[in-house]
Design a protein around this nucleic acid. Structure first.
Length: 393
DNA sequence: GATCCACGGGAATACACGGATG
DNA sequence: CATCCGTGTATTCCCGTGGATC
């Protein structure tokens, strides 16, 4: 950094950056109301859901596609609109001239990352189906199960339940979903959303209907980015060429592309730049491992695990050298009241779950005993740091 | 009183290495 | 030379406990 730069920083140090207007708008975990460039997939889903417009239920389905293909974006947007337009309010609306006008089903979207146990699933579905609040504790699994069954027991009651992110480490497997949610006979249709190709599902675990969500084409991904940029960043802060670079680099993965953009913008802010420069873009992409764990997965981890990860992303390579060193550094950092034993266990478990990676030390000459392993984050670090801080004041 | 879940904590096991053993 | 053994770490595993909630 030269003197001119130093002085320039001081000059601007009192000013707010004008690069980012709204972090949520460029966040890889936020979804927009109208997904860009996923028209054909929406059509497929609407075809599949056709029976609901006559008050019926579609068969169970499996929506699948690679990371960052817009599965969650499309399903959340669609379910949001459907429940608002169809079952919303439960009043009138159904003044159709159709022969047999049955009430349309309810639409419930469940994130399996949040509902990661049987009780959790029952709770989430029941919550989406019920007006008031649903007890989270003190009620046994079986009780919740029968409450859900009761809720869907009346002849006219039915629901389409989308369960997103099935088959990830820590979430329900697509094959187990049937066993868990088969509580209400044929008044509940399941839409599992996951990454594994249907062929890889366990024997007999594949629903009758499959809907594939292909990865984004580069030019479509550019559109996605451009739309987000226009919502979240100040005019003229990103060049078109830069969005093209991001799209090409992300290889069709909208999550990664947005994470890179978000990171670049955040770096630009930190550097007090007036727009995203090349080095900001580089740094932004640098902050996204390839392949990357979804930011959403990290942000739905239990609070204390996120707290540990938040400290982890601030550690230097010296502290990341071993699990022990990282544990020590984290335990010593402010705002951590977990015991060292617990922090260490978290670090091992996070690595086991694929959130981080333990890299075995290549040389084992130093000292005796089993050599330690280095820790590397496998999630978008800059994005996580910013979003975590925004959520925690 | 019941239920679920995250924590703590420590026991059990795995691994790496050098040196002893067969 | 192939194995086994002891020592020192690293890693995994598991269960009791306590808070929060109903």
């Amino acid at each position: 950094m030269d003197l001119k730069e130093r002085i320039r920083r001081r000059q601007h140090s009192g000013e707010e950056s004008r690069v980012v207007l709204d972090y949520d708008a460029i966040s890889p975990v936020a979804h927009v109301e109208e997904p860009t460039g996923r028209g054909p997939v929406l059509e497929r889903l609407l075809d599949y859901l056709e029976p609901v417009f006559d008050g019926g239920l579609p068969p169970n389905a499996y929506v699948w596609g690679p990371s960052g293909a817009g599965k969650s974006a499309v399903v959340t947007a669609l379910f949001e609109h459907l429940s608002r337009l169809l079952s919303g309010g439960g009043t009138v609306i159904h003044t159709t001239t159709r022969a047999q006008s049955r009430p349309t089903p309810s639409f419930v979207y469940v994130d399996a990352r949040r509902a990661d146990t049987d009780v959790g699933l029952y709770h989430a579905v029941l919550d989406g189906l019920t007006e008031g609040s649903v007890p989270k504790h003190g009620v046994g699994t079986e009780t919740m199960r029968s409450r859900l069954a009761e809720r869907l027991a009346p002849a006219e009651a039915s629901a389409v339940v989308a369960v997103d992110h099935v088959g990830e480490p820590g979430t329900v497997a697509p094959g187990d979903l049937a066993g868990t949610l088969d509580v209400a006979g044929d008044s509940l249709a399941r839409v599992a959303v996951g990454r594994s190709p249907p062929g890889e599902l366990a024997e007999g675990a594949s629903p009758p209907e499959h809907i594939r969500v292909p990865p984004y084409e580069d030019h479509t991904l550019v559109d996605v980015l451009t739309n987000r940029v226009s919502e979240g960043l100040a005019r003229g802060t990103v060049e078109h060429e830069q969005t093209r670079r991001l799209a090409a680099w992300a290889n069709g993965d909208a999550h990664d592309a947005l994470a890179g953009l978000f990171g670049a913008a955040d770096v630009a802010v930190a550097e007090r730049h007036d727009r995203i420069y090349e080095r900001d873009l580089e740094a932004g992409m640098e902050g996204v491992p390839r392949p990357s764990v979804s930011t959403g997965r990290v942000l739905t981890l239990p609070e204390n695990r996120q707290r540990v990860l938040r400290r982890l992303v601030d550690l230097d390579s010296e502290a990341l050298r071993s699990v022990d060193a990282a544990t020590e550094a984290i335990a010593a950092s402010p705002g951590i009241d977990l015991s060292a034993a617990t922090i260490k266990r978290f670090l091992y478990e996070l690595a086991e779950d694929g959130i981080t990676e333990r890299v075995a030390s290549p040389r084992a000459t130093e000292g005796v005993g089993r050599p330690p392993s280095r820790i590397e984050p496998l999630f978008p670090t800059i994005v996580f740091r910013r979003l975590y801080d925004l959520r925690h004041g």
